[in-house]
């Protein structure tokens, strides 16, 4: 819950800043809130993770680093490109970075499956990944055709990997129903 709150808090700060309700200095000060929430979520998750699962602990550490990278690069890209009008190759590089953090998310989830020593949990993680992929790809395909025939408005593409992350949660619920255990929900 704290992890979700930290991302929502970061997006709220970003929204306040972009809507000019606060200036950049205030935004950086308020950024303490999501960072503090993320640190809290990370420490709490480490304490709650299965103590004998090194894979689960590595997963949490890596995910915290990637989320920090995502939020940092998003703020920098917004600040430099949107507000200061940066253009050219450097702008393209900055625009690439927040999206590339999703490659990190996929790698981290794959590493969790590879490194997990408990075969039952490996099964749960694989199911979660497949369910998330099924949900996000199906929604992307359906929405894409609805867009093509102008029945719905276009959606910014970064929502599909975001939905994949929610799909991991749906996969966890499916695991709980079938196997009595969620798997990885953080």
């Amino acid at each position: 819950m704290a992890a979700v709150s930290s991302v929502l808090a970061a997006l709220m700060v970003l929204f306040l800043w972009k809507s000019e309700a606060i200036n950049i200095g205030t935004a950086y000060v308020l950024a303490i809130v999501p960072v503090a929430l993320m640190v809290f979520a990370f420490v709490r998750s480490l304490r709650q993770s299965r103590s004998d699962s090194k894979a689960s602990q590595r997963y949490l550490t890596r995910m915290a680093l990637v989320m920090a990278f995502y939020l940092l690069t998003l703020f920098v890209a917004e600040n430099q490109i949107e507000d200061r009008g940066l253009t050219g190759p450097l702008a393209a590089l900055l625009a690439l970075l927040p999206g590339l953090s999703f490659a990190g998310v996929i790698w981290i989830f794959g590493a969790l499956i590879v490194e997990e020593q408990d075969e039952f949990f490996r099964l749960l993680y694989v199911r979660q990944g497949l369910i998330a992929t099924g949900v996000s790809f199906t929604l992307a395909a359906v929405w894409g055709y609805l867009e093509t025939y102008k029945i719905v408005d276009p959606v910014v593409a970064y929502w599909w990997p975001t939905i994949w992350c929610f799909g991991i949660g749906i996969g966890g619920v499916a695991n709980k129903i079938k196997y009595g255990t969620f798997g990885e929900m953080r």
């Binding site: 020593q117 408990d118 075969e119 039952f120 009595g180 255990t181």
Partner: peptide, 19 residues
């Protein structure tokens, strides 16, 4: 066995067949 408690529970309840 060197596995999680959840694994033992899943095997005992017949929800999961071990390798």
């Amino acid at each position: 066995l060197g596995v999680s408690r959840q694994s033992v529970n899943a095997i005992e309840t017949g929800r999961y067949d071990p390798s």
